[in-house]
Computed example of a mutant assay.
Amino acid sequence: MCRWMTYSGEPVLADDLLFRPVHSLIDQALHSKLGATTTNGDGFGIGWYGEGDVPALFKSTEPAWNDENLRELAGQIRTGLLFAHIRASTGTPVQRSNCHPFRHGTWMWMHNGGITGFPTIKRELVGAVAPELYPHIEGSTDSEVLFYLALTFGLRDDPPAAVERAVGLVEEVAAGAGIRHPVQMTVATADGSTTWAFRYSSVGRSRSLYHSTHIGQLRRMHPEVPVFGTLPDTARLIVSEPLRDMPDAWAEVPESCWGMITEDGRGEQHAFAPRRP
């Protein structure tokens, strides 16, 4: 499986988020504590919103801990909305087009998990993607197909409903093929101002997902942690696993739940339930 993180808030250097925390995402690439695999070395990607109309992406098939270009860029990229993902392939090739995040227009998407039996049901799922969206699929992963199904079902208008319909379709098609418990996912998606995160699995035992508690409170409680002093009060992080062994800094996202964080730091959580399309 994979590990990922999102940041939203006042612009900060990517280096402060990717490399400096004790158990940073780069450290998790080698030493994941909560993932299905300890090592996540099948490529990585970062996506960020900057000066352009669409988010920028930097993706590579190199292990994240061994890429000097990532280290160089992280010290220069300052952004208020960052996606970062380290990949452990579930069977599809290690190639750039299969690295997360995925992008369509102003939207980004990344996923940890998988669709059980994907090769068996791939044709039917891809066939459900809107004809005008189909040509934009570049890779061969279940994660990217899930993204384009969500776009097909209205991600740009109502992200939670669109993801519920996309997951509902996957479960319906899988059931028809005799596949039990097909969906395992934590997903993040953003449009440039708001970030949505989802935690769900058909079997009810989803991969780990956490969100940061109030940065100002953490700064007061833990003055010994330098990174808290660099983040603004509006900062919010969502992570596959905490960036430091500090229980009061992180809250687990509940099972079968979706949440959203706006650019001013406001957040909310709701129950997630797949919808049959």
Score class of each variant (00 low, 15 high):
146 L>F: 10
47 G>P: 00
153 F>Q: 03
166 A>F: 01
261 I>R: 00
123 R>I: 14
73 L>R: 08
243 L>N: 00
189 T>N: 05
157 D>R: 11
216 G>N: 07
96 R>I: 14
246 M>K: 04
67 D>Y: 07
8 S>R: 05
152 T>S: 05
28 Q>W: 02
129 V>D: 02
67 D>E: 12
270 H>S: 09
187 V>A: 07
86 I>V: 12
253 V>T: 08
172 E>Q: 13
94 V>Y: 11
172 E>F: 07
31 H>F: 14
172 E>M: 08
82 L>T: 01
183 V>Q: 03
275 R>K: 15
98 N>C: 11
239 V>L: 01
221 M>W: 06
107 W>S: 00
182 P>T: 14
8 S>G: 11
259 G>P: 05
97 S>R: 14
240 S>Y: 06
8 S>M: 06
262 T>M: 11
83 F>I: 08
226 P>C: 11
95 Q>L: 15
107 W>A: 01
118 F>T: 09
62 E>C: 15
79 T>Q: 00
37 T>N: 10
165 R>F: 05
125 L>R: 01
91 G>A: 08
248 D>N: 10
227 V>C: 05
246 M>Q: 07
266 R>I: 12
252 E>Q: 13
242 P>I: 01
218 L>K: 03
257 C>H: 09
77 I>G: 03
232 P>V: 12
90 T>M: 10
15 D>L: 09
212 S>M: 04
131 P>V: 15
134 Y>K: 13
204 G>H: 03
258 W>E: 05
213 T>L: 09
37 T>F: 07
91 G>H: 12
194 T>F: 03
95 Q>P: 12
116 T>F: 11
177 A>V: 12
108 M>E: 06
195 T>F: 01
9 G>V: 10
224 E>R: 04
41 G>C: 08
90 T>E: 06
183 V>I: 13
158 D>I: 08
211 H>D: 04
149 L>W: 03
48 W>C: 04
57 L>D: 05
248 D>R: 05
261 I>K: 02
24 S>E: 04
173 V>G: 02
83 F>G: 00
138 E>M: 13
251 A>M: 10
224 E>D: 10
39 T>R: 06
266 R>S: 15
169 L>F: 06
148 Y>Q: 01
102 F>N: 02
76 Q>M: 12
71 R>H: 14
142 D>K: 01
209 L>C: 02
49 Y>I: 07
265 G>Y: 03
225 V>T: 10
74 A>T: 07
240 S>H: 01
125 L>M: 03
203 V>C: 11
246 M>A: 10
245 D>W: 06
47 G>T: 03
277 P>N: 13
23 H>R: 08
264 D>P: 10
42 D>F: 06
206 S>L: 04
180 R>L: 15
156 R>L: 14
200 Y>F: 14
11 P>D: 09
208 S>K: 00
56 A>L: 09
87 R>L: 09
87 R>W: 08
240 S>C: 09
